[in-house]
Design a protein around this nucleic acid. Sequence first.
DNA 1: CACGTTTTCTATCACTTGATAGAAAAGTAG
DNA 2: CTACTTTTCTATCAAGTGATAGAAAACGTG
Lengths: 202, 202
Amino acid sequence: MTAKRARPGPRSARQRERLIAAGYRAMVRSGLEGARTRDIAGEAGITVATLHYYFPTKDDLVRAVLEHTIQEQMLAPLRLDADWDDGLAALETMITGLARHADAEPGHYRLLNEMTWAAREDATLRAMLAVWHEGWHGAIGDWLRAAQRDGRVRSDLDTGAVATMIIYLVLGMVTRPPLPAGAEDRLSEELHRLLAAFEPKD
Amino acid sequence: MTAKRARPGPRSARQRERLIAAGYRAMVRSGLEGARTRDIAGEAGITVATLHYYFPTKDDLVRAVLEHTIQEQMLAPLRLDADWDDGLAALETMITGLARHADAEPGHYRLLNEMTWAAREDATLRAMLAVWHEGWHGAIGDWLRAAQRDGRVRSDLDTGAVATMIIYLVLGMVTRPPLPAGAEDRLSEELHRLLAAFEPKD
DNA sequence: CACGTTTTCTATCACTTGATAGAAAAGTAG
DNA sequence: CTACTTTTCTATCAAGTGATAGAAAACGTG
């Protein structure tokens, strides 16, 4: 017996990509549930019916968009490849870069956020996110250990635990909560002070 | 000319509260948009029509629920009053308490999260959140300064900037992202190490 | 009880939204 | 051109969903 699968035609890969791109934009604009299939189709230059020819249900499209988001849109802002030689600089680049990006593209981080909540009830999504977080956690740990070897970060720190703290810090930061003015100004500087290998003169 | 306002009857304050409580539960369960007015009314033991007698639009109800959430449900888990004498202990109590609470009641923090995003386009909501964040930020700063006076926290730290970091850290933590197993185990311990007044023997 | 007010319900609307059926159009091969 | 496949469109459905009108019930007061 044939599985209750979608019709098997090869489809146009180009149209698929166009729909995923339009879906990403719509979800960044209106959120995961707020994005309307009609808008997405319209933005891709087709009708809803044709959208459903490529993605039988909205959930299929959402899945494809989130997968695309993780693989294409999420790694870039992290700058995991930046300045590998200088771990502290890489850390700073990542944090300030993300803060700026979160101001410019808040919808992107709202999408990441909705994804995290959705992952609680979706094993596939959770697995994808876990892989991504693992890579991120590992990269930050590597940066910290490199800086420890250079004597620029306290050698007694548990780099894994600190990496976790930094990830939490960044995840909270990109939600851009309404903190008192200037609360973020000395953040990066202060993080460096906390991690620094030697006590300042005081 | 009379303003286009709802009918002026006094209403029952008890029913209002019952609706807000039911709304809070429904939104914790299904999210801000996912909560259905029919479900909320049913949970309060009335029909949708009666709900609209108390809250002309769903948005009015949402507003009331969020206001209630900030004032009643949000301050409690922070334990801002805990162990005021010992700032570091208060900090630890807050962080571990929030981690546990976030595991037990994730929906509460999803609601807080949706609120933060909604506040971007709603000045009233943003103002309410800002007041709450300001109090939180101030309390953490007070704890840190108290611990500095006791000589248990490095005196060279900018307590405001560190308070911001801790708030970001907590906001990220309560989203419970799928980090590698055990990533959070030594978090609190490591935070203490970072803040500690003296370098360990190494 | 009688009368006015407040509260609640039944029934229904108006509209959105994801989804589908079936025809038409576009592409492909001989 | 013809026959077949792939893609797209028009038109429409079915299930919600917030909201309302208007009658009925409950309440309060003398």
